[in-house]
Design a binder for these strands. Structure first.
Length: 578
DNA sequence: ACTCAAATAT
DNA sequence: GATATTTGAG
Protein backbone atom coordinates (compact mmCIF):
# COMPACT_ATOMS: atom_id res chain seq x y z
CA UNK A 1 0.00 0.00 0.00
CA UNK A 2 1.18 3.36 -0.76
CA UNK A 3 -0.66 6.45 -0.21
CA UNK A 4 0.37 9.98 -0.17
CA UNK A 5 -1.68 12.62 1.36
CA UNK A 6 -1.03 16.23 1.63
CA UNK A 7 -2.50 18.17 4.34
CA UNK A 8 -3.85 21.56 4.19
CA UNK A 9 -2.75 23.67 6.95
CA UNK A 10 -0.13 21.48 8.28
CA UNK A 11 1.69 21.06 5.02
CA UNK A 12 1.75 24.75 4.61
CA UNK A 13 3.45 25.31 7.86
CA UNK A 14 5.90 22.58 7.27
CA UNK A 15 6.79 23.15 3.73
CA UNK A 16 6.78 20.27 1.38
CA UNK A 17 8.94 18.06 3.43
CA UNK A 18 7.98 14.51 3.14
CA UNK A 19 8.19 12.35 6.12
CA UNK A 20 8.72 8.82 5.24
CA UNK A 21 7.64 6.33 7.74
CA UNK A 22 7.78 2.65 7.67
CA UNK A 23 4.75 1.22 9.20
CA UNK A 24 5.25 -2.20 10.46
CA UNK A 25 1.68 -3.00 10.75
CA UNK A 26 0.79 -6.55 11.04
CA UNK A 27 -2.68 -5.84 12.09
CA UNK A 28 -5.17 -3.17 11.66
CA UNK A 29 -4.86 -1.68 15.03
CA UNK A 30 -1.62 -0.21 13.99
CA UNK A 31 -3.24 1.41 11.06
CA UNK A 32 -5.88 2.69 13.31
CA UNK A 33 -3.43 4.15 15.67
CA UNK A 34 -1.61 6.01 13.05
CA UNK A 35 -4.57 6.94 11.00
CA UNK A 36 -4.34 10.41 12.33
CA UNK A 37 -0.88 10.62 11.15
CA UNK A 38 -1.73 9.21 7.81
CA UNK A 39 -4.30 11.84 7.37
CA UNK A 40 -1.96 14.57 8.20
CA UNK A 41 1.34 13.67 6.71
CA UNK A 42 2.93 12.71 3.56
CA UNK A 43 4.03 9.29 4.19
CA UNK A 44 4.70 5.96 2.78
CA UNK A 45 3.48 2.95 4.52
CA UNK A 46 4.33 -0.61 3.93
CA UNK A 47 2.81 -3.63 5.30
CA UNK A 48 4.75 -6.75 5.63
CA UNK A 49 4.08 -10.36 6.13
CA UNK A 50 7.17 -11.53 7.83
CA UNK A 51 10.02 -9.98 9.63
CA UNK A 52 12.15 -10.73 6.62
CA UNK A 53 9.82 -8.77 4.46
CA UNK A 54 10.16 -5.93 6.79
CA UNK A 55 13.91 -6.03 6.73
CA UNK A 56 13.98 -6.20 2.98
CA UNK A 57 11.72 -3.27 2.65
CA UNK A 58 13.81 -1.30 4.99
CA UNK A 59 16.97 -2.12 3.12
CA UNK A 60 15.36 -0.97 -0.05
CA UNK A 61 14.03 2.24 1.35
CA UNK A 62 16.48 3.08 3.98
CA UNK A 63 17.68 6.22 2.34
CA UNK A 64 14.25 7.67 2.36
CA UNK A 65 13.08 6.48 5.66
CA UNK A 66 12.94 8.78 8.58
CA UNK A 67 11.24 6.73 11.12
CA UNK A 68 9.99 3.33 11.76
CA UNK A 69 6.68 3.19 13.39
CA UNK A 70 5.38 -0.03 14.72
CA UNK A 71 2.91 -1.30 17.14
CA UNK A 72 3.70 -3.86 19.66
CA UNK A 73 1.78 -5.97 22.04
CA UNK A 74 2.12 -8.85 24.36
CA UNK A 75 1.99 -11.33 21.59
CA UNK A 76 4.95 -9.80 19.90
CA UNK A 77 7.64 -10.94 22.18
CA UNK A 78 9.88 -11.61 19.24
CA UNK A 79 9.41 -8.18 17.82
CA UNK A 80 12.18 -6.79 19.84
CA UNK A 81 14.74 -8.76 18.01
CA UNK A 82 13.93 -7.10 14.79
CA UNK A 83 13.83 -3.76 16.40
CA UNK A 84 17.30 -4.18 17.70
CA UNK A 85 18.41 -5.30 14.34
CA UNK A 86 16.94 -2.35 12.57
CA UNK A 87 18.50 -0.05 14.97
CA UNK A 88 21.90 -1.57 14.51
CA UNK A 89 21.91 -2.12 10.81
CA UNK A 90 20.16 0.97 9.62
CA UNK A 91 20.57 3.46 12.39
CA UNK A 92 16.95 4.27 12.02
CA UNK A 93 14.82 5.55 14.75
CA UNK A 94 12.00 3.50 15.91
CA UNK A 95 8.76 4.63 17.31
CA UNK A 96 6.94 2.02 19.18
CA UNK A 97 3.29 2.13 19.87
CA UNK A 98 2.22 -0.09 22.67
CA UNK A 99 -1.36 -1.08 22.48
CA UNK A 100 -1.82 -0.65 26.13
CA UNK A 101 0.06 -0.09 29.28
CA UNK A 102 0.80 -3.70 29.85
CA UNK A 103 2.32 -3.98 26.46
CA UNK A 104 4.41 -1.04 27.14
CA UNK A 105 5.64 -2.43 30.38
CA UNK A 106 6.23 -5.67 28.72
CA UNK A 107 8.19 -3.97 26.03
CA UNK A 108 10.52 -2.26 28.37
CA UNK A 109 10.92 -5.33 30.45
CA UNK A 110 11.71 -7.74 27.71
CA UNK A 111 14.21 -5.69 25.90
CA UNK A 112 13.15 -3.21 23.30
CA UNK A 113 16.52 -1.64 23.46
CA UNK A 114 16.76 0.32 20.31
CA UNK A 115 13.40 1.79 20.62
CA UNK A 116 13.66 5.49 20.58
CA UNK A 117 10.27 6.60 21.53
CA UNK A 118 6.98 5.31 22.61
CA UNK A 119 3.79 6.86 21.50
CA UNK A 120 0.60 6.00 23.16
CA UNK A 121 -2.27 5.55 20.84
CA UNK A 122 -4.24 8.43 19.51
CA UNK A 123 -1.69 10.57 17.91
CA UNK A 124 -2.37 14.18 18.30
CA UNK A 125 -1.45 16.83 15.91
CA UNK A 126 1.14 17.74 18.40
CA UNK A 127 2.74 14.36 18.18
CA UNK A 128 2.80 14.57 14.48
CA UNK A 129 4.33 17.95 14.62
CA UNK A 130 6.90 16.55 16.82
CA UNK A 131 7.75 13.81 14.46
CA UNK A 132 8.07 16.35 11.77
CA UNK A 133 10.30 18.41 13.88
CA UNK A 134 12.38 15.38 14.46
CA UNK A 135 12.75 14.76 10.80
CA UNK A 136 14.00 18.25 10.30
CA UNK A 137 16.25 18.05 13.22
CA UNK A 138 17.74 14.91 11.95
CA UNK A 139 18.68 16.48 8.69
CA UNK A 140 20.32 19.26 10.51
CA UNK A 141 22.45 16.79 12.30
CA UNK A 142 20.63 16.23 15.48
CA UNK A 143 19.97 12.62 15.82
CA UNK A 144 17.71 11.73 18.60
CA UNK A 145 14.10 12.21 19.09
CA UNK A 146 13.28 14.11 22.12
CA UNK A 147 10.25 13.68 24.14
CA UNK A 148 7.29 15.89 24.43
CA UNK A 149 3.65 15.39 25.11
CA UNK A 150 2.76 11.85 24.48
CA UNK A 151 6.03 11.10 22.89
CA UNK A 152 7.88 9.27 25.50
CA UNK A 153 11.54 8.99 25.58
CA UNK A 154 12.94 5.75 26.74
CA UNK A 155 16.46 5.16 27.77
CA UNK A 156 18.01 1.88 28.55
CA UNK A 157 14.73 0.17 28.58
CA UNK A 158 13.65 1.91 31.67
CA UNK A 159 10.57 3.96 31.49
CA UNK A 160 8.21 5.70 33.72
CA UNK A 161 6.07 6.15 30.83
CA UNK A 162 2.80 4.51 30.99
CA UNK A 163 1.00 6.31 33.69
CA UNK A 164 1.89 9.67 32.36
CA UNK A 165 1.15 8.80 28.86
CA UNK A 166 -2.24 7.53 29.69
CA UNK A 167 -3.45 10.25 31.87
CA UNK A 168 -4.21 12.28 28.87
CA UNK A 169 -3.24 15.32 30.73
CA UNK A 170 -2.58 17.03 27.59
CA UNK A 171 -2.39 20.43 29.03
CA UNK A 172 -0.88 23.41 27.48
CA UNK A 173 2.76 23.11 26.99
CA UNK A 174 4.89 25.05 24.70
CA UNK A 175 7.80 23.33 23.20
CA UNK A 176 9.82 25.65 21.12
CA UNK A 177 12.99 23.72 20.99
CA UNK A 178 12.35 22.33 17.61
CA UNK A 179 11.57 25.54 15.96
CA UNK A 180 8.42 26.56 14.32
CA UNK A 181 6.52 23.40 13.84
CA UNK A 182 5.03 23.27 17.29
CA UNK A 183 1.43 24.23 17.15
CA UNK A 184 -0.64 25.44 19.96
CA UNK A 185 -2.11 22.36 21.50
CA UNK A 186 -5.77 21.94 21.59
CA UNK A 187 -7.17 22.19 25.02
CA UNK A 188 -8.88 19.13 26.24
CA UNK A 189 -11.33 19.85 28.95
CA UNK A 190 -10.89 17.17 31.45
CA UNK A 191 -13.37 16.41 34.10
CA UNK A 192 -11.22 18.18 36.61
CA UNK A 193 -10.91 21.26 34.51
CA UNK A 194 -14.56 21.29 33.88
CA UNK A 195 -15.27 20.98 37.53
CA UNK A 196 -13.08 23.93 38.20
CA UNK A 197 -14.86 25.78 35.52
CA UNK A 198 -18.20 24.97 37.05
CA UNK A 199 -17.02 25.97 40.46
CA UNK A 200 -15.89 29.26 39.10
CA UNK A 201 -19.15 29.86 37.37
CA UNK A 202 -21.04 28.98 40.47
CA UNK A 203 -18.94 31.25 42.55
CA UNK A 204 -19.33 34.19 40.25
CA UNK A 205 -22.96 33.65 39.70
CA UNK A 206 -24.41 32.61 36.46
CA UNK A 207 -25.04 36.01 35.11
CA UNK A 208 -21.73 37.40 36.16
CA UNK A 209 -19.57 34.60 35.01
CA UNK A 210 -17.37 36.05 32.34
CA UNK A 211 -14.37 34.49 30.78
CA UNK A 212 -11.81 36.74 32.31
CA UNK A 213 -12.93 36.16 35.85
CA UNK A 214 -13.35 32.51 35.26
CA UNK A 215 -9.83 32.06 34.05
CA UNK A 216 -8.56 33.79 37.10
CA UNK A 217 -10.57 31.68 39.43
CA UNK A 218 -9.68 28.50 37.71
CA UNK A 219 -6.07 29.40 37.93
CA UNK A 220 -4.76 26.87 35.51
CA UNK A 221 -1.51 27.83 33.91
CA UNK A 222 -1.74 27.97 30.20
CA UNK A 223 -5.46 28.16 30.06
CA UNK A 224 -6.35 31.26 28.20
CA UNK A 225 -9.29 33.51 28.40
CA UNK A 226 -10.20 32.41 24.92
CA UNK A 227 -10.24 28.83 25.96
CA UNK A 228 -12.58 29.60 28.74
CA UNK A 229 -14.73 31.82 26.62
CA UNK A 230 -15.14 29.01 24.25
CA UNK A 231 -16.05 26.60 26.95
CA UNK A 232 -18.43 29.07 28.38
CA UNK A 233 -20.05 29.46 25.06
CA UNK A 234 -20.60 25.80 24.87
CA UNK A 235 -21.77 25.67 28.41
CA UNK A 236 -24.38 28.27 27.78
CA UNK A 237 -25.48 26.57 24.68
CA UNK A 238 -25.92 23.29 26.41
CA UNK A 239 -27.73 24.98 29.17
CA UNK A 240 -30.12 26.59 26.82
CA UNK A 241 -30.79 23.51 24.89
CA UNK A 242 -31.29 21.63 28.05
CA UNK A 243 -33.86 24.05 29.23
CA UNK A 244 -35.85 24.02 26.06
CA UNK A 245 -35.85 20.50 24.99
CA UNK A 246 -35.61 18.46 27.99
CA UNK A 247 -36.72 20.38 30.90
CA UNK A 248 -38.27 18.56 33.68
CA UNK A 249 -37.60 15.21 32.39
CA UNK A 250 -36.40 13.16 35.16
CA UNK A 251 -33.16 12.69 33.46
CA UNK A 252 -30.89 13.55 36.13
CA UNK A 253 -28.09 15.07 34.26
CA UNK A 254 -25.80 16.86 36.50
CA UNK A 255 -24.81 19.51 34.13
CA UNK A 256 -25.47 20.18 30.56
CA UNK A 257 -22.20 18.71 29.56
CA UNK A 258 -22.88 15.38 30.98
CA UNK A 259 -19.76 15.64 32.95
CA UNK A 260 -19.99 13.81 36.12
CA UNK A 261 -19.98 15.77 39.25
CA UNK A 262 -20.44 14.95 42.80
CA UNK A 263 -23.80 14.35 44.20
CA UNK A 264 -23.66 17.29 46.47
CA UNK A 265 -24.15 19.58 43.57
CA UNK A 266 -27.06 17.75 42.26
CA UNK A 267 -29.79 19.87 43.58
CA UNK A 268 -28.32 23.20 43.12
CA UNK A 269 -30.50 24.84 40.61
CA UNK A 270 -27.78 26.36 38.58
CA UNK A 271 -26.50 22.99 38.16
CA UNK A 272 -29.21 20.91 36.98
CA UNK A 273 -30.85 22.35 33.96
CA UNK A 274 -33.24 19.51 34.02
CA UNK A 275 -34.54 20.24 37.42
CA UNK A 276 -37.70 22.03 36.60
CA UNK A 277 -40.21 22.54 33.92
CA UNK A 278 -42.23 20.34 31.75
CA UNK A 279 -41.38 17.05 30.38
CA UNK A 280 -41.47 15.58 26.93
CA UNK A 281 -39.98 16.63 23.66
CA UNK A 282 -36.99 14.44 23.92
CA UNK A 283 -34.07 15.59 21.97
CA UNK A 284 -30.77 14.11 21.21
CA UNK A 285 -29.75 15.50 24.46
CA UNK A 286 -31.40 12.65 26.14
CA UNK A 287 -28.32 10.72 25.54
CA UNK A 288 -30.12 8.27 23.44
CA UNK A 289 -30.31 9.47 19.99
CA UNK A 290 -33.81 9.53 18.79
CA UNK A 291 -33.42 11.47 15.65
CA UNK A 292 -34.95 10.09 12.62
CA UNK A 293 -36.77 7.29 14.13
CA UNK A 294 -37.99 5.31 11.26
CA UNK A 295 -41.41 5.55 12.68
CA UNK A 296 -41.47 9.22 12.23
CA UNK A 297 -42.80 9.74 15.67
CA UNK A 298 -41.16 11.05 18.70
CA UNK A 299 -40.65 8.17 20.97
CA UNK A 300 -41.84 8.47 24.46
CA UNK A 301 -38.84 7.98 26.59
CA UNK A 302 -40.54 8.46 29.85
CA UNK A 303 -39.70 4.94 30.68
CA UNK A 304 -36.21 6.07 31.28
CA UNK A 305 -37.26 8.35 33.97
CA UNK A 306 -34.70 7.77 36.55
CA UNK A 307 -31.64 7.31 34.57
CA UNK A 308 -28.97 9.15 36.32
CA UNK A 309 -25.36 9.73 36.37
CA UNK A 310 -23.02 7.62 38.25
CA UNK A 311 -20.32 9.47 40.09
CA UNK A 312 -17.65 8.06 37.93
CA UNK A 313 -17.47 7.09 34.38
CA UNK A 314 -17.90 3.48 34.84
CA UNK A 315 -20.82 3.15 32.59
CA UNK A 316 -21.31 3.96 29.04
CA UNK A 317 -24.70 3.84 27.51
CA UNK A 318 -25.24 2.66 24.08
CA UNK A 319 -28.50 3.33 22.52
CA UNK A 320 -29.96 3.30 19.14
CA UNK A 321 -32.70 5.36 17.79
CA UNK A 322 -35.08 2.64 18.64
CA UNK A 323 -34.48 2.49 22.32
CA UNK A 324 -32.36 -0.48 22.62
CA UNK A 325 -30.34 0.06 25.66
CA UNK A 326 -27.07 -1.41 26.52
CA UNK A 327 -24.50 -0.40 29.02
CA UNK A 328 -20.92 -1.17 28.89
CA UNK A 329 -19.34 -1.47 32.20
CA UNK A 330 -15.87 -1.20 33.42
CA UNK A 331 -14.44 0.47 30.48
CA UNK A 332 -10.80 0.27 31.00
CA UNK A 333 -8.81 0.81 27.93
CA UNK A 334 -5.84 -0.84 29.40
CA UNK A 335 -7.54 -4.08 29.92
CA UNK A 336 -9.56 -6.14 27.62
CA UNK A 337 -12.27 -6.87 30.03
CA UNK A 338 -15.53 -5.25 29.28
CA UNK A 339 -18.91 -6.09 30.54
CA UNK A 340 -22.26 -5.24 29.22
CA UNK A 341 -25.59 -4.97 30.77
CA UNK A 342 -28.79 -4.05 29.20
CA UNK A 343 -32.30 -5.01 28.60
CA UNK A 344 -34.00 -6.43 25.67
CA UNK A 345 -37.00 -8.17 24.42
CA UNK A 346 -37.33 -11.71 25.55
CA UNK A 347 -37.97 -14.67 23.41
CA UNK A 348 -41.68 -14.67 23.86
CA UNK A 349 -41.82 -11.24 22.47
CA UNK A 350 -43.70 -10.11 25.46
CA UNK A 351 -41.28 -9.87 28.23
CA UNK A 352 -38.15 -8.10 29.05
CA UNK A 353 -34.94 -9.67 29.95
CA UNK A 354 -32.26 -7.96 31.78
CA UNK A 355 -28.90 -9.36 31.48
CA UNK A 356 -25.26 -8.86 31.54
CA UNK A 357 -22.30 -10.26 29.90
CA UNK A 358 -18.68 -9.98 30.33
CA UNK A 359 -16.07 -10.22 27.71
CA UNK A 360 -12.66 -11.17 28.53
CA UNK A 361 -10.02 -11.77 26.01
CA UNK A 362 -6.52 -12.74 26.59
CA UNK A 363 -4.79 -11.55 23.54
CA UNK A 364 -5.26 -8.15 22.14
CA UNK A 365 -6.11 -9.63 18.85
CA UNK A 366 -9.52 -10.74 19.85
CA UNK A 367 -10.29 -7.56 21.53
CA UNK A 368 -9.26 -5.60 18.58
CA UNK A 369 -11.41 -7.49 16.25
CA UNK A 370 -14.31 -6.94 18.44
CA UNK A 371 -13.74 -3.33 18.34
CA UNK A 372 -14.01 -3.24 14.63
CA UNK A 373 -17.54 -4.25 14.40
CA UNK A 374 -19.38 -2.73 11.55
CA UNK A 375 -22.52 -1.04 12.41
CA UNK A 376 -25.43 -2.85 11.04
CA UNK A 377 -27.84 -0.29 12.20
CA UNK A 378 -26.95 3.08 13.21
CA UNK A 379 -26.30 2.77 16.86
CA UNK A 380 -24.61 5.88 17.87
CA UNK A 381 -22.60 5.68 20.91
CA UNK A 382 -24.01 8.12 23.26
CA UNK A 383 -21.87 11.11 23.49
CA UNK A 384 -18.18 10.78 23.32
CA UNK A 385 -15.33 10.53 25.65
CA UNK A 386 -15.31 14.06 26.73
CA UNK A 387 -18.85 15.14 26.99
CA UNK A 388 -20.84 12.07 26.76
CA UNK A 389 -23.76 11.42 28.88
CA UNK A 390 -22.52 8.76 31.04
CA UNK A 391 -25.63 7.46 32.45
CA UNK A 392 -26.33 4.78 34.81
CA UNK A 393 -29.47 3.38 36.03
CA UNK A 394 -29.92 0.78 38.57
CA UNK A 395 -32.01 -2.13 37.72
CA UNK A 396 -32.61 -5.32 39.41
CA UNK A 397 -32.75 -8.95 38.83
CA UNK A 398 -35.17 -9.89 41.40
CA UNK A 399 -37.24 -12.69 40.14
CA UNK A 400 -36.94 -15.67 38.01
CA UNK A 401 -39.85 -15.05 35.75
CA UNK A 402 -40.51 -12.71 32.95
CA UNK A 403 -42.83 -9.84 33.05
CA UNK A 404 -45.91 -10.34 31.02
CA UNK A 405 -47.71 -7.39 29.73
CA UNK A 406 -50.19 -6.78 27.08
CA UNK A 407 -50.02 -3.22 26.06
CA UNK A 408 -47.35 -0.82 25.17
CA UNK A 409 -48.29 1.53 27.84
CA UNK A 410 -47.91 -1.09 30.42
CA UNK A 411 -44.58 -1.89 29.05
CA UNK A 412 -43.48 1.56 29.50
CA UNK A 413 -44.56 1.92 33.02
CA UNK A 414 -43.29 -1.41 34.02
CA UNK A 415 -39.92 -0.77 32.61
CA UNK A 416 -39.91 2.53 34.28
CA UNK A 417 -40.73 0.87 37.49
CA UNK A 418 -38.14 -1.72 37.03
CA UNK A 419 -35.31 0.51 36.27
CA UNK A 420 -36.29 2.76 39.03
CA UNK A 421 -35.33 0.25 41.54
CA UNK A 422 -32.41 1.52 43.30
CA UNK A 423 -31.05 -0.92 45.73
CA UNK A 424 -30.46 -3.96 43.79
CA UNK A 425 -27.84 -3.31 41.26
CA UNK A 426 -26.06 -6.58 41.23
CA UNK A 427 -22.35 -6.68 41.15
CA UNK A 428 -21.17 -7.24 37.71
CA UNK A 429 -20.32 -10.80 37.34
CA UNK A 430 -20.76 -13.39 34.76
CA UNK A 431 -22.72 -15.59 37.06
CA UNK A 432 -26.35 -15.10 37.83
CA UNK A 433 -27.14 -14.99 41.48
CA UNK A 434 -28.15 -18.34 42.73
CA UNK A 435 -31.20 -16.99 44.28
CA UNK A 436 -32.23 -13.87 42.50
CA UNK A 437 -34.24 -12.80 45.44
CA UNK A 438 -31.20 -12.68 47.58
CA UNK A 439 -30.14 -9.55 45.90
CA UNK A 440 -32.88 -7.76 47.69
CA UNK A 441 -31.27 -8.22 50.98
CA UNK A 442 -27.65 -8.34 50.08
CA UNK A 443 -25.93 -5.22 49.14
CA UNK A 444 -22.46 -5.87 48.00
CA UNK A 445 -20.10 -3.24 49.09
CA UNK A 446 -19.34 -2.49 45.52
CA UNK A 447 -22.57 -0.60 45.26
CA UNK A 448 -21.62 1.82 47.85
CA UNK A 449 -20.35 4.35 45.44
CA UNK A 450 -23.56 4.66 43.65
CA UNK A 451 -25.25 7.95 43.70
CA UNK A 452 -27.96 8.62 46.13
CA UNK A 453 -31.23 7.31 44.94
CA UNK A 454 -33.54 9.63 43.23
CA UNK A 455 -36.98 9.43 44.59
CA UNK A 456 -39.23 7.34 42.55
CA UNK A 457 -41.82 9.19 40.66
CA UNK A 458 -43.90 6.11 40.51
CA UNK A 459 -46.31 4.93 43.04
CA UNK A 460 -44.98 2.02 44.87
CA UNK A 461 -48.31 0.42 44.80
CA UNK A 462 -47.97 -0.04 41.12
CA UNK A 463 -45.44 -2.67 41.70
CA UNK A 464 -46.27 -5.93 43.28
CA UNK A 465 -44.30 -6.68 46.29
CA UNK A 466 -42.44 -9.86 46.64
CA UNK A 467 -44.88 -11.37 48.98
CA UNK A 468 -47.57 -10.99 46.43
CA UNK A 469 -45.88 -13.20 44.03
CA UNK A 470 -46.45 -16.86 44.12
CA UNK A 471 -43.07 -18.23 43.43
CA UNK A 472 -44.41 -21.57 42.38
CA UNK A 473 -46.37 -20.26 39.48
CA UNK A 474 -45.38 -18.23 36.58
CA UNK A 475 -45.71 -14.87 38.09
CA UNK A 476 -47.61 -12.48 36.03
CA UNK A 477 -46.90 -8.89 36.49
CA UNK A 478 -50.02 -7.23 37.51
CA UNK A 479 -50.87 -4.57 35.05
CA UNK A 480 -49.32 -1.37 36.08
CA UNK A 481 -51.22 1.78 36.32
CA UNK A 482 -49.46 4.30 34.28
CA UNK A 483 -48.54 7.00 36.65
CA UNK A 484 -47.94 10.53 35.80
CA UNK A 485 -44.40 11.44 36.40
CA UNK A 486 -44.12 14.45 38.59
CA UNK A 487 -41.49 16.95 37.84
CA UNK A 488 -38.40 16.68 39.87
CA UNK A 489 -39.38 19.64 41.90
CA UNK A 490 -42.36 17.80 43.21
CA UNK A 491 -40.44 14.93 44.49
CA UNK A 492 -40.29 14.52 48.12
CA UNK A 493 -36.67 14.83 48.86
CA UNK A 494 -37.03 13.75 52.41
CA UNK A 495 -39.21 10.75 52.06
CA UNK A 496 -37.41 7.61 52.75
CA UNK A 497 -36.78 5.53 49.80
CA UNK A 498 -38.54 2.26 49.62
CA UNK A 499 -37.18 0.01 47.03
CA UNK A 500 -39.85 -1.37 44.91
CA UNK A 501 -39.69 -4.99 44.36
CA UNK A 502 -40.27 -5.99 40.88
CA UNK A 503 -41.00 -9.54 41.42
CA UNK A 504 -41.57 -10.43 37.90
CA UNK A 505 -38.35 -9.95 36.16
CA UNK A 506 -36.52 -12.73 34.61
CA UNK A 507 -32.89 -12.93 35.21
CA UNK A 508 -31.28 -14.08 32.12
CA UNK A 509 -27.75 -14.57 31.39
CA UNK A 510 -27.17 -12.41 28.49
CA UNK A 511 -25.27 -14.89 26.50
CA UNK A 512 -27.32 -17.66 25.17
CA UNK A 513 -26.39 -20.50 22.94
CA UNK A 514 -26.91 -19.43 19.40
CA UNK A 515 -28.62 -22.65 18.57
CA UNK A 516 -31.34 -21.22 16.44
CA UNK A 517 -30.83 -19.49 13.19
CA UNK A 518 -30.81 -16.03 14.49
CA UNK A 519 -27.72 -15.18 12.64
CA UNK A 520 -26.66 -11.66 12.73
CA UNK A 521 -26.86 -9.82 9.50
CA UNK A 522 -23.77 -10.59 7.57
CA UNK A 523 -21.25 -7.96 8.20
CA UNK A 524 -19.70 -6.38 5.25
CA UNK A 525 -16.00 -6.43 5.30
CA UNK A 526 -13.83 -9.02 6.82
CA UNK A 527 -14.90 -8.84 10.36
CA UNK A 528 -17.90 -10.98 9.92
CA UNK A 529 -16.60 -13.71 12.07
CA UNK A 530 -15.71 -11.47 14.86
CA UNK A 531 -19.08 -9.91 14.55
CA UNK A 532 -21.02 -13.04 14.91
CA UNK A 533 -18.91 -14.02 17.80
CA UNK A 534 -19.99 -10.96 19.60
CA UNK A 535 -23.43 -11.27 18.33
CA UNK A 536 -23.97 -14.64 19.76
CA UNK A 537 -23.33 -13.20 23.13
CA UNK A 538 -26.21 -10.90 22.88
CA UNK A 539 -28.55 -12.64 20.61
CA UNK A 540 -31.42 -14.49 22.00
CA UNK A 541 -31.79 -17.58 20.00
CA UNK A 542 -35.39 -17.78 20.87
CA UNK A 543 -36.22 -14.40 19.62
CA UNK A 544 -39.07 -14.70 17.21
CA UNK A 545 -38.18 -13.72 13.68
CA UNK A 546 -40.12 -10.55 13.72
CA UNK A 547 -38.02 -9.37 16.56
CA UNK A 548 -34.77 -10.37 15.15
CA UNK A 549 -33.74 -7.03 14.08
CA UNK A 550 -30.45 -6.76 15.66
CA UNK A 551 -28.17 -3.91 15.76
CA UNK A 552 -24.61 -3.59 16.66
CA UNK A 553 -22.68 -0.90 18.25
CA UNK A 554 -19.04 -0.50 18.58
CA UNK A 555 -16.50 2.12 18.87
CA UNK A 556 -13.44 2.12 16.82
CA UNK A 557 -10.77 2.59 19.30
CA UNK A 558 -10.06 -0.66 20.81
CA UNK A 559 -12.37 -2.05 23.34
CA UNK A 560 -16.05 -1.80 23.25
CA UNK A 561 -18.43 -3.50 21.05
CA UNK A 562 -21.82 -4.86 21.54
CA UNK A 563 -24.89 -6.11 19.95
CA UNK A 564 -28.23 -4.81 20.87
CA UNK A 565 -31.57 -6.09 20.03
CA UNK A 566 -34.20 -3.82 18.77
CA UNK A 567 -36.87 -2.74 21.08
CA UNK A 568 -39.32 -1.09 18.81
CA UNK A 569 -42.08 -3.44 19.31
CA UNK A 570 -42.04 -2.94 22.93
CA UNK A 571 -42.90 0.63 22.71
CA UNK A 572 -44.73 1.06 19.54
CA UNK A 573 -47.78 -0.71 18.54
CA UNK A 574 -47.38 -1.46 14.92
CA UNK A 575 -50.98 -0.73 14.29
CA UNK A 576 -50.56 2.71 15.58
CA UNK A 577 -47.76 3.39 13.29
CA UNK A 578 -49.22 2.62 9.96
C1' DA B 1 -13.35 42.05 26.88
C1' DC B 2 -17.31 39.69 25.27
C1' DT B 3 -20.14 37.02 22.10
C1' DC B 4 -21.19 34.69 18.00
C1' DA B 5 -20.59 31.83 14.37
C1' DA B 6 -17.53 30.14 10.80
C1' DA B 7 -13.56 27.42 10.30
C1' DT B 8 -10.98 23.59 11.79
C1' DA B 9 -9.73 19.66 14.28
C1' DT B 10 -10.91 15.45 16.36
C1' DG C 1 -20.81 12.76 10.17
C1' DA C 2 -21.06 14.75 14.56
C1' DT C 3 -18.89 17.42 18.08
C1' DA C 4 -15.40 20.02 20.22
C1' DT C 5 -12.33 23.81 20.04
C1' DT C 6 -10.20 27.70 17.85
C1' DT C 7 -10.28 31.75 15.38
C1' DG C 8 -11.57 36.04 14.10
C1' DA C 9 -15.06 39.47 13.19
C1' DG C 10 -18.37 42.57 15.16
Amino acid sequence: MNRTTSLGRYTQSCGAKEMCILLMNDDYICRNIVSDMLDHCRYEAFSYESEMDALNIIREKKDDLELILTNINRTHANRYGIIDHIKREFKLQIVLMPVDIDDEKNASRSGGNGVTVYIMKSLSMNDINHLWATSFAREKGKTELSSSGKLIHVENGSSSVASEACKRTRTLEVNEENGNVEKKPRVVWTKEMHQKFLDAVAQLGHDKAFPKKIVELMNLPGLTRENVASHLQKYRMCMKRAQEGFTGSSYDFLDPFGFNTSQRNLRQPHWNPFGTGSRNAPTTHSGLNYHGSRFGVTPDISFLNTIRLKPDHNFRVYGDEKKSVLLSIGENRASSNTSFAGFRLAGDGKSVEFGQNSHFSEGTRIVNEKSYIQQQHSLPEVGNDDFSHHLSFPFSFTSAEPVKLSSNQQWQSSIAALIDIDKTMPPISTQPPLNPLASLTQQPSSWSNWAEPIKLPYQQSCIPSLQDVDQTKTPIMTPLQPCATPALAEWDETASFVPSQSAALMWTEWAEPASVSSQPPAASGNNANANSEIFSDFTSSSLPPEFRQLGMAGDDDGVDAAAICVFDDLFFDRQDLT
